[in-house]
């Protein structure tokens, strides 16, 4: 092929051969009508925008793990000064350190393994709230709006991770 012309796909800018009907990289109908070509580009654009939205949701969910760690830390510092002599300081400190550490670790981990970190974070948060509820039924009321927001963000995050992977596969992005 001496006089090879550089053919670039109008959608993904990949090179294509003269006799190809569709782009092998993005499925763009090279020989299709104007309408088909515009539809293809529009469909992909919609999915790409969805993907950006979903990734934002995942990021919010990952950040809410930091928020949980922070809130537990702050409320423990407040709790520390209201401890009575009968309470065991050592148990209180160990519990706090482990919980804050666990959520911080999950938050860091969520950057590389969002599904695992978010599912684990959500389960741990729900379990902690339920155990608190048993120990002290009035604890559920404290900061209930914040708790609900956190749980909603985490659930949305888990769903968004899965949805984002699905869209990536539909777009056939590796």
């Amino acid at each position: 092929m001496e006089n090879q012309q550089l053919n670039l796909c109008a959608c993904c800018a990949n090179t294509f051969a003269q006799n190809d009907s569709y782009c092998i990289s993005c499925g763009y109908p090279l020989q299709g009508t104007n309408e088909q070509q515009e539809n293809h580009i529009a469909n992909r654009a919609v999915k790409e925008i969805d993907l950006i939205d979903l990734n934002k949701k995942v990021e919010t969910a990952c950040n809410s793990l930091y928020w949980i760690a922070g809130i537990i830390g702050v409320s423990s510092i407040i709790g520390y000064f209201t401890l009575t002599d009968e309470d065991d300081v050592l148990i209180f400190l160990i519990t706090t350190v482990i919980m804050v550490g666990a959520f911080l670790a999950l938050a860091v981990w969520s950057k590389t393994k969002p599904t695992t970190a978010l599912i684990s974070g959500l389960s741990l948060y729900v379990i902690i709230q339920l155990l608190n509820l048993i120990a002290d039924p009035s604890s559920i009321i404290r900061g209930i709006i914040f708790k609900i927001i956190i749980i909603v963000y985490l659930i949305k995050g888990v769903m968004a991770v899965l949805e984002a992977e699905k869209i990536k596969k539909e777009l056939n992005i590796k």
Binding site: Y22, G27, K166, K169
Partner: peptide
């Protein structure tokens, strides 16, 4: 190839249905 150059079909149907 991600897509068929003749019919335009995405070549990862199994992965898509899995997801």
């Amino acid at each position: 190839n991600n897509f068929c150059r003749v019919c335009g079909q995405a070549q990862n149907l199994k992965e898509v249905s899995f997801h």
